[in-house]
Computed example of a mutant assay.
Amino acid sequence: MDSDPALLADMLHHRTGSLPAGSPVALPLTPASTYALPGTIDAPFTYGRAGGPTWSALEEALGVLEQAETVVLPSGMAAISAVLLTHLTRGDRVLLPSDGYYATRRLAEQFLTPVGVEVVLRPTAEYAQQDLDGFTVVLVETPSNPALDLCDIAEVSARAHAAGALVVVDNTTLTPLGQRPLELGADVVVASDTKAPNGHSDALLGHVATRRPDVLERVRQWRTLAGGIPGQLETWLVHRGLETLELRFDRMCSSALVLAERLEEHPATRDVVHPGLPSHPQHELASRQMARAGSLIGFALPDAETAERFLERARRVVSATSFGGVHTSAERRARWGDAVPEGFVRLSVGCEPTEELWADLEQALRGLG
């Protein structure tokens, strides 16, 4: 599955083709909460909680990449919450990845289970064995975060639809440039645009994309009535970041594959995982389902102390919990309670020159094996 260059060009020029003479080429930031409504409420924008020109510009740009209508929300978790909380009620069942992003499970435990929603957890790689009868929503995260396991989106979607379930895919790790879940049969994409789409570690945002008008309307109404809305500045920052996503993502993914291959051969590391490696247990699926293997690498060091020493010694790696930024970052994921070894490191490859980054990783690993 390859990225479509025409979509990328369309995204970059989604608004420039209709600009009147003298208009700024860059998207203006419109920090408005109130709009003029002389004699009518039939206007493109009425009140800041319901919409605005900065939101619309980003939704249109993301919509070009997703090839689906898109709603922006203040974070990736806001996007996930907007879908789950508007489509699940007492007596419903939801399937979530037990090895996916931990905040999704906590949301379910604290706010879905108490109101009578049955939450079923299953490792991503075992979704193929899960009976989907009786589920209202099936949420897929592939590659899973942080262990980078995969499941077959097309296969799960076909079985889920036969059982009457809504299929939601968290596509944060790959973006629309790395994987296109809607083309593979999913109903809804949720993503954290805080990560690679923004890319500069300075704004929180998320989005929901879908070709189902009923889902779209419920999410839009939820955003307006619950008041969980994105800030205008954050939206503007993500729109600006989105315009360089292809260039950054290409560097990040290309470097990640090179580094993963070298880390796999390094005597200090073990259990190196990256979907682009032939050693990944689902490499063949990755080759079919993904356009790029992504910028995340997982590897294990002997124990927590060794992992922390590596992080302290790496001068070109920021110790941070997010990923997808221009700066390479890493962290020991077990500290968040993820089901990974204590010495497991999630490395998010940024935009630094590949050889400079490898030299730094190599010196940080020296003597740790």
Rank of each mutant, 00 (worst) to 15 (best):
L65K: 09
A300E: 12
H283V: 01
V71L: 05
H274D: 10
S98D: 01
D170C: 12
V215E: 06
G294K: 11
A160L: 07
L245T: 08
L368N: 07
S81Y: 14
A78S: 15
T244Y: 08
R211M: 00
S319R: 15
T306V: 07
L107I: 09
P28V: 03
E118S: 13
A108N: 04
S192M: 09
V208A: 06
T54Q: 06
S33W: 11
G48L: 10
V120H: 07
L205F: 04
V167S: 06
L27W: 14
Q282R: 15
T235E: 11
Q67D: 13
A108D: 04
V94P: 03
V318R: 06
V71Y: 04
E217T: 13
L225V: 12
L95R: 04
N198Y: 13
A165H: 08
E141R: 04
L174I: 02
E183T: 06
T104P: 02
I153R: 02
M11W: 04
T224N: 01
R251F: 00
A293P: 14
L132C: 09
L365H: 06
L58C: 02
G369K: 00
R122W: 00
G294A: 10
Q67C: 09
Y47Q: 12
T175I: 08
E284F: 00
A43Y: 07
M290L: 13
G325L: 03
G206F: 00
P353M: 05
A334W: 10
E342V: 14
A108S: 05
M77F: 03
L7R: 12
P53Y: 06
N198I: 05
S255F: 05
H207P: 12
R90A: 14
A158T: 09
P74E: 04
D42W: 07
H14G: 01
L259E: 07
F344E: 03
E284I: 00
L37M: 13
G17S: 04
E308Y: 03
M1H: 15
P53D: 04
H274K: 12
G48E: 10
D250Y: 07
S348L: 08
D10W: 07
R218Y: 15
G22H: 11
H87V: 01
E126N: 03
L73D: 02
A304G: 02
L285Y: 08
R309Y: 00
P197H: 10
A320E: 12
G91C: 07
C351T: 15
E118F: 02
D214W: 10
S81G: 09
T104L: 08
F299T: 09
S81W: 15
Q221P: 03
P5S: 10
F323D: 07
E66V: 00
D149H: 12
G134K: 05
A304W: 05
A165P: 08
S56N: 15
T124M: 06
D133N: 06
V140C: 12
L237D: 01
L62V: 10
R15H: 14
R211N: 13
P353K: 11
G350H: 08
A314W: 10
E264K: 12
I41P: 03
V188H: 05
D360S: 04
A158K: 12
P38E: 14
L365P: 11
P278I: 01
D2Q: 10
L204E: 15
